[in-house]
Simulated assay, not measured.
Amino acid sequence: MRKVLISACLLGKKVRYDGGALAVADQIVERWRSEGRIVSVCPEVEAGMSTPRPPAEIFKGSGEGVLNGEVDVIEKGGAKVTNDFLAGASIALNLCRKFDISVAILAEFSPSCGSSAIYDGSFSGKKVPGMGVTAALLREHGVQVFSQYEIAAANNALIEEIV
């Protein structure tokens, strides 16, 4: 049975920077949960960051730039947390390797987990096309990454693997 990596906040765990969750109510996720398919991860928490914690954004770039050492992840207030985000991404990749996971559902807009859009680094609420650090690292290693708005597509990707 193929497992799926899912952001812990999407499963209702209060691990977001503000101490909240982004729980999704979805029949597919509930079926996966009952089948024991889900591997939960919060890259920031796994890397040792606290909950709550200051909000962080990728400054003038995206996850690929962070992986390449070109840009940093900065907390509101200016502290660099790039190494924490890289460590969390590495932990998520190791979970994918350990459980032979090739499909992940990660929280959109997060500097770790955003798969198609993230905040622009100005802490103004402006979103730009791009990936978070974890999403970029997983894709670089062949994991298909979807957002919480693409659960049906993630399920189809799993079904295609099995067939």
Results as ranks from 00 to 15, higher is better:
102 S>R: 15
9 C>D: 08
128 V>G: 04
88 G>P: 02
77 G>E: 09
92 A>D: 08
111 P>Y: 04
100 D>C: 08
29 V>K: 00
23 A>F: 10
41 V>H: 00
79 A>D: 12
101 I>Y: 01
76 K>T: 07
110 S>R: 03
137 L>H: 09
145 V>H: 12
157 A>P: 05
42 C>N: 04
14 K>V: 01
89 A>V: 02
126 K>T: 13
154 A>F: 12
58 I>L: 04
24 V>M: 14
47 A>N: 05
128 V>A: 00
10 L>P: 02
101 I>R: 01
10 L>E: 07
124 S>N: 14
127 K>C: 08
63 G>S: 11
111 P>I: 03
53 R>E: 02
100 D>F: 11
13 K>D: 13
129 P>F: 08
43 P>Q: 09
114 G>R: 06
12 G>C: 12
83 N>K: 12
8 A>S: 15
101 I>G: 01
148 Q>W: 07
116 S>N: 12
70 E>M: 05
139 R>N: 11
4 V>N: 08
16 R>V: 11
145 V>G: 08
37 R>P: 02
68 N>W: 06
46 E>K: 06
137 L>S: 02
116 S>R: 14
136 A>D: 00
106 L>H: 08
118 I>D: 02
52 P>T: 10
78 G>I: 09
112 S>Q: 04
149 Y>D: 15
26 D>C: 13
103 V>G: 00
35 E>R: 06
147 S>A: 05
62 S>C: 13
3 K>N: 14
103 V>F: 12
12 G>H: 10
111 P>A: 08
85 F>H: 10
72 D>F: 01
74 I>T: 04
10 L>V: 10
83 N>C: 01
91 I>Y: 11
163 V>A: 08
90 S>I: 00
29 V>S: 02
47 A>H: 03
24 V>Y: 03
140 E>R: 15
90 S>V: 01
118 I>G: 03
163 V>L: 13
11 L>E: 06
67 L>M: 01
29 V>C: 06
136 A>T: 05
47 A>T: 01
69 G>E: 09
155 N>Q: 14
108 E>A: 07
65 G>S: 06
147 S>I: 03
12 G>R: 11
161 E>W: 13
160 E>Q: 13
38 I>W: 06
65 G>W: 07
42 C>D: 03
156 N>G: 02
114 G>K: 03
143 V>W: 07
110 S>D: 02
111 P>N: 07
